[in-house]
């Protein structure tokens, strides 16, 4: 399918796009103040910075993630003081190593600017918790633990969030988790259910 851009903006302002509002900062990483500040402060932790659809993604090394985010929060010229979102992505089908990405969406209320910080890691690596920096990371990290099995180091209360506490069938948002789970569930009253067609997502 064609990948060229189809812009249908209003006639009075050609080229203006609804999502192009400049609240992700400069689109060139070399001009972005936060990216430059992190590069200077943490030269060994900086990996790269990618821009897609004007959104700036900063990738750092995992051990320095908390220091970098803390620096972005506390630096008086950056002040990313609101943790918008914290989640993870299982990159199993997209790349070999590292398997997971932890994704932190930051927003600066005084500067009205967003930034996304990512760090890659493999299964079992302890991820530094953001709870010492943002109280709001508590449930978001519990959910990431619940759905991906990520262990956050320094989290005060790492329990399952949405699934039952005694759920012993793994972490469902991993890409190798079958869509319908590992077991055949038998409804009460339907002890001999009709066989379900399972084309994809069969248990490996």
């Amino acid at each position: 399918m064609a990948e060229e851009e189809h812009t249908g903006g209003p006639a009075d302002s050609p080229g203006r796009r609804i999502w192009d509002t400049g609240y992700w900062g400069p689109t060139v990483p070399e001009e972005h103040p936060a990216i430059q500040a992190v590069r200077e402060k943490f030269p060994e932790a900086y990996v790269d910075a990618v821009n897609f659809r004007d959104e700036m993604t900063l990738r750092v090394e995992l051990p320095a993630l908390r220091e970098v985010v803390g620096f972005l929060r506390d630096d008086p010229s950056l002040r990313y003081n609101l943790l918008s979102d914290l989640t993870a992505v299982d990159m199993l089908r997209l790349r070999d190593n590292p398997r997971f990405d932890v994704v932190v969406q930051l927003y600066s209320i005084p500067r009205r600017q967003r930034l996304r910080v990512k760090a890659g890691f493999n299964d079992g690596d302890p991820v530094p918790s953001m709870v010492p920096l943002y109280q709001g990371a508590n449930w978001l990290e519990r959910e990431a633990y619940d759905m991906f099995g990520i262990v956050f180091e320094g989290h005060p209360d790492l329990r399952r969030m949405l699934l039952p506490d005694d759920w012993d069938e793994g972490h469902p948002l991993r890409k190798d988790y079958p869509l319908r789970g590992y077991r055949e569930y038998v409804q009460p009253g339907f002890e001999n259910p009709a066989p379900r067609v399972r084309s994809r997502f069969r248990r490996p």
Partner: peptide
């Protein structure tokens, strides 16, 4: 729409 790079008419 942002992912696709399109925008709806006014």
């Amino acid at each position: 729409e942002k992912l696709c790079g399109i925008e709806a008419p006014e």
